[in-house]
Design a protein around this nucleic acid. Structure first.
Lengths: 234, 234, 234, 234
DNA sequence: CATGAATGAGGTTTCATTCAT
DNA sequence: TATGAATGAAACCTCATTCAT
């Protein structure tokens, strides 16, 4: 199945579009590039993309405004690269987890822990992902998707293996389960962001356990007291 | 416990802040107000909040630009009212569901169906909720929260009742379960939005069933093959 | 001499310009008209002409916005009428003073007392005259001048009579003296306005006495110690 | 007495208010800054502050609109700086006059000549001072006052010295005399402005002489024919 | 006469991006 | 490669005025 091999097309940079000005040579000064990127995360995260000023990012990075444009095409590109490179890190670690010789349940738990843990470790970065990246439809469509899709494929792959191997319910819909896993983790992060809580969220593993075992009480008497499925319109 | 009675304080309008200019008399022409609001949803949904032009909304509604400001404080207020009034509708229906004499599982299913169904019925409205409303931290903090919190409380209330009545697992963490229910539904909507699919998403009930029963295969041999928690580095 | 008869051309309303929309019939409700005018003085005086809102004036007068336009051509007209009618009052009283059988010095004193006293009795009115009426060159040119010119002519007339009758210095330049009398009184009002002092300025008579007798010390030794008039360039 | 030493506190820039955005670096291009300032005087003077458009000022100065904001905070700041720097020039010259070893009468004459001459040399600048600067209460209160107050203090200082040295009447009220000197000069300028006369007003010295010697005729028979002070109400 | 809802023109200011140095 | 001064497009909102009722 295609999913057993994580997408590996050399998309190099998803944001590289034909017809656009090529991104300036990234070779110049890698250390300076990194500083700009870090300043962008910090500024986007605290001010929001729209309120973030290139001048502020440049100052934060200790470079002139024009210098930003030697390393990045434009402001949007800066956001895109933050996403791109963060995702690359996550995806790299994700691939390792997916390949690990572990039960599906465990691998899912680790994926979620990766998701929540990675963004939960940096409020600004989390803010960029949870808030800023959803703003621009153009952004979302252009690059968010393909990297995200790869992440989704990983979850999907593990889920399917789990079903195949009898670890997960035979009737589990992987597509739906992917939404649940990602959506729940995502919501935990959003909640954490808005709560202002400084300690990173730590519900990753418990989240997966809850999902694995379900909400329903098990036992002789608990279930199905009455569950009218018809005749009670809303 | 407080949660047994869903929040019912007449929060009047959450967006009404002391110190702000009062929203212009809303009594003028309800039909015109509705037209402006509909135009706003359509424009915000298709262009995005920032790209939406007041002039476009006004034209769409068939009024002069200035007229918009007879009914709404400013552009942001327009977005806030869309959220406010949509939430009011959802919350009203939500209260009905919460109060219904039905098993917790069924009420949760209906809540999720309400969530997904309501926004899934209008791409533009969904777009405003899934994308635009997450953009502005100021927006999110100001009004999104309190209406959302009431929605969360409803889920929480049903979940706690389910636990109390033995319908749901005794060790279920309601707070976590709320995140799961909301996050998963939310993600389904986002996925639907980005997919471009025109038919509304219909996974509401299946989502809840999956959550209720869990991912794990039930049966003699399936579970707990091996779940090493240590020794496997990432 | 022409000046012995104050200008009396039936300028009716100085603001009445050919080609402009005629001012609406002023007969409607004189009491309402007066209320609007009073509200205009109050609002122009406290907020300034530009910051004054027709809506505020209307509310202050207890009429609808549209009603203002039944009595006045437009916002500028409102300011013009305030000036016009105030000046009419002042000029009427001024004519009485000019005609009085009194020494020129006394009549000048009374003119200045009229000037300072009339505006000093109403901060808002003073504010309109001292500040708002200087703002718009168009306003100043259109109507301020002709009413003011009549006022200047009165002063000029009294001054010339004083010279003719030997009461005032033969070499007094009436044109210059008019500027002094008006300018000094005007400055006293401006100073009073900006000082925030609530009691009206009371320097009218002392001002004139100072002007009449001059600044120079009289007496054997005081004057002309050294007064190099040439050779000392600046 | 404090007045013997003219105020000399380095008020830096009176318009610099704490809490306001700092004025952009003034070091950039002094020549360009000067061009913008000159264009502002010209435009404010001819159109009036409110009718003046930033676009017009920029075009007049040969820069882009945005460039104006590299040198000045905003439109109002532009007006403030015109006042500020003009006053600085006048005050510098004024200080020289005040310190000069000359009779008080001569120094007053030179102060008035400075006042009338400086603004009389530039219709646009005069227009800004005589008309635009009186418009906005906020403007007047913020910066006009403190620079003006210093000018007033200079006049006051010379007047007091004149009294002390026996050159001026012992009973002269310096405060009142300051109003007279300033108000009369001011009115001469306003008159000149409205007259449309192109030659600058040249009445400075004659004005002072008239003030010094008074209006009253001197001589055996002229004065005090009858000067009823009471019993004749208006 | 009176109302007040509706109109729509109009301008300051910001800030991403460029390019001469 | 780096700078940062200069650019100039672009749109929200206000409010005087009108006019249907």
């Amino acid at each position: 199945m295609a999913h057993s091999r994580p997408a590996r097309e050399p998309l190099a940079s998803v944001t590289e579009q034909p017809g656009e000005a090529p991104r300036p040579v990234p070779g110049a000064d890698p250390e300076k590039r990194k500083r700009i990127l870090a300043a962008a995360v910090k500024t986007f995260g605290s001010r929001g993309y729209h309120e973030a000023r290139i001048a502020e990012i440049a100052a934060q990075a200790g470079v002139a405004e024009g210098t930003v444009y030697l390393y990045f095409r434009n402001k949007e590109d800066l956001l895109g690269v933050v996403f791109d490179e963060t995702m690359d890190e996550v995806l790299a670690e994700g691939r390792r987890i997916v390949r690990a010789d572990l039960p599906a349940a465990e691998r899912l738990a680790r994926m979620v822990e990766l998701h929540v843990g990675f963004l939960g470790a940096d409020r600004d970065l989390a803010s960029v992902f949870q808030i800023e990246l959803r703003r621009s439809a153009r952004l979302v469509e252009r690059f968010s998707r393909s990297k995200l899709v790869e992440y989704f494929r990983m979850l999907d792959h593990v889920l399917r293996q789990g079903v195949e191997r009898g670890e997960l319910r035979r009737d589990l819909d992987p597509r739906l389960a992917v939404r649940i896993l990602f959506g729940a983790a995502d919501e935990i992060l959003s909640e954490w962001l808005l709560s202002g809580e400084s300690r990173p969220p730590s519900d990753g593993r418990r989240l997966v356990e809850t999902l694995l075992h379900g909400f329903i009480a098990r036992g002789p008497a608990a279930t199905r007291r009455k569950a009218p499925r018809k005749g009670d319109s809303r």
